[in-house]
Amino acid sequence: MFENIFSPETLTEAWGIIQSEMLFALWETLYITVIATVFSVIIGLPIGVLLVVGDKDGVLPLPKTLMHIINIIVNILRSVPFLILMIMVFPLTRLIVGTTVGTTASIVPLVIAAFPFVARLVEGSLREVNPNIIETAQSMGASPFKIIVKVMIPESVPSLISNITIAITTILSYTAMSGIIGGGGLGKIAINYGYYRYKYLVMLVAVILLIVLVQVFQSVGTHLSVKTDKRLKR
């Protein structure tokens, strides 16, 4: 299957494709990833907060049934495989974007798949906050809203950053899959050339770029998380 991968002809041909398409694909991947992450956080963060504060002994206990419903929705969305979810949300995508194919359209299923994940990650981060600190804020007369925005979220910033980094890298790998339904980016290149046209070298380069992107996101995220954490003595 890979025998001719490094022959002179394939090399020149691949170089041509890389020159003409790769940079744009890279940009598309970044664009999709960033936009999808932003929306996932916008939706997932408040839900993650609700999952923590709405608990029986949280700072803003919510009705048990409501908590059950939120939990079930999050769990269902998290358990549907992304490939199937993409197809299932077609009607919603059409409603929002007007079409179900293309780069922008692929953002919708990404967000639907990622926000429950983000919600769980946020939940985990917020649960790490020392409950005694929350209680201290309560003893000062802080309202639940103030506790959320002035204690819980600021205190968990380093953990939130490292969790959102995990979300970004996951979304990045999902963008590769959305190439199947016409979403752009490195995933589309890999599928189009590698799977449909047997140009493995192009696919290989696309995959390497994806790996590099993950590494970059991860190191930036880890660096920021450590840098913002004032619990570490310096």
């Binding site: 000062m140 007369g141 205190e155 954490d229």
Partner: peptide, 29 residues
């Protein structure tokens, strides 16, 4: 509760805020 302050065994300071911001926290609230 603003009239009833409390201190604890574990100090319970906000770890991501500096000393000055910790002290002004109740005033901020």
């Amino acid at each position: 509760r603003k009239n009833i302050a409390m201190i604890f065994q574990g100090f319970n300071l906000l770890m991501q805020r500096n000393v000055l911001k910790n002290i002004s926290f109740p005033l901020e609230l």
